[in-house]
Design a binder for these strands. Structure first.
Lengths: 201, 201
DNA sequence: ACCTGAACACCGTTCAAGT
DNA sequence: ACCTGAACACCGTTCAAGT
């Protein structure tokens, strides 16, 4: 008998998630079927139910993994940049838009409405994580005097609404061509003005 | 023989769309099935295929109708407000967020990635319509000296990214409670600063 | 523990045939 | 023109049974 390796498959749960994300990206969400996944992995059609009680449970897990990857990407991007608010905002914006366009179908899933109540809670907690990354950016910016003072919501809402709006419009290919053509500089400038400290003169 | 009324149903196409939107709103997109729709309307399960070649074709039509309604709502809202850019922006923002939260599942569908190529073209044209409504707001604002000059994209991108981001985060229930609690005034203020004319001093 | 195989109720899509 | 009824190939989910 072999030392490791479970019954038929090494780690079916992980394999299901990986394969699901591939077909999501390649053939879209409508083409995602548990039975086909099972076929692709060489297990019986009933095997997935050991690991995900539901098709929805698999979708929820996929979305959750997406949020975790997004948070990692953001952390990595922010680590490699300067200290000014403008630089850090630019890095964050770039990372988020990059992620959104490279994982358009997944982003759709991450912000879908149809999640299980329990998963919903986990998911909104996960979505809060990148919002919090943005929030700490803003707090830093306030300490540096580069962002107007006041309660976090007063400027934070604008910042992540703008980022998320641009990212999701870009992901769903809904931006006018002229806009898509330019880089993110205009958007960053817009946000910076929205964040600008009240003039102290 | 009765004067009007087609074979079994008055206007199956319209009835299918209406009923589809109801079940979309009440039971979510996963619960939407052509066969159940047909059952609900008392026709055979094959009848819908006369009017929509595909399930996707029905979804596309639903999304398109959504864009038309959104455009109407926006026009109506803008007609009933003042002339200053701030007022008009506020009215537009309110109308869009209202629509988004009242039609969350439909909004999801409108910005979904999975549309038929042909429908995709119609849909992105439809989505351009409300973007253009926002653009004309901005041009007006520029004429009034209330919005910074320059090419449309330089400030337009920021404006509708922010609106769409807030609306879709609100629709997917992804906004922190403190944010959701306040009204739109903070967001409008953020956008207004982003639009502010360069100071001429 | 992990998976199989059969069973059930449901799909979407197509196509001859009816009125 | 518009719809029906049967047929086909596919689903998701459940559950006894196997190793």
């Amino acid at each position: 008998m072999h030392t490791r390796r479970r019954y038929h498959h090494g780690d079916l749960r992980a394999a299901l998630l990986t394969r699901a994300e591939e077909t999501l990206r390649e053939k879209g969400p409508a083409a995602l079927s548990l039975r086909e996944l099972a076929r692709d992995l060489g297990v019986s059609h009933a095997a997935p139910s050991r690991h995900f009680k539901d098709k929805q449970a698999l979708l929820d897990a996929l979305a959750l993994a997406g949020f975790h990857r997004l948070a990692q990407t953001m952390t990595a991007a922010l680590k490699e940049t300067g200290e000014s608010f403008a630089e850090r905002l630019r890095a964050g914006a770039h990372a988020y838009v990059e992620f959104a366009t490279a994982n358009a179908e997944l982003l759709d899933l991450m912000y879908a409405i149809k999640h299980t109540p329990e998963a919903s809670e986990e998911l909104s907690a996960a979505s809060r994580r990148w919002i919090e990354q943005m929030e700490s950016l803003i707090i830093e910016g306030q300490h540096r005097g580069e962002v107007r003072d006041g309660p976090l919501e007063s400027v934070g809402t604008g910042v992540f609404s703008t980022l998320h709006g641009y990212a999701s419009l870009a992901a769903s290919d809904s931006l006018p061509a002229e806009v898509r053509a330019q880089d993110l500089e205009e958007l960053v400038a817009f946000i910076l003005r929205g964040c600008a400290p009240e003039k102290t003169g």
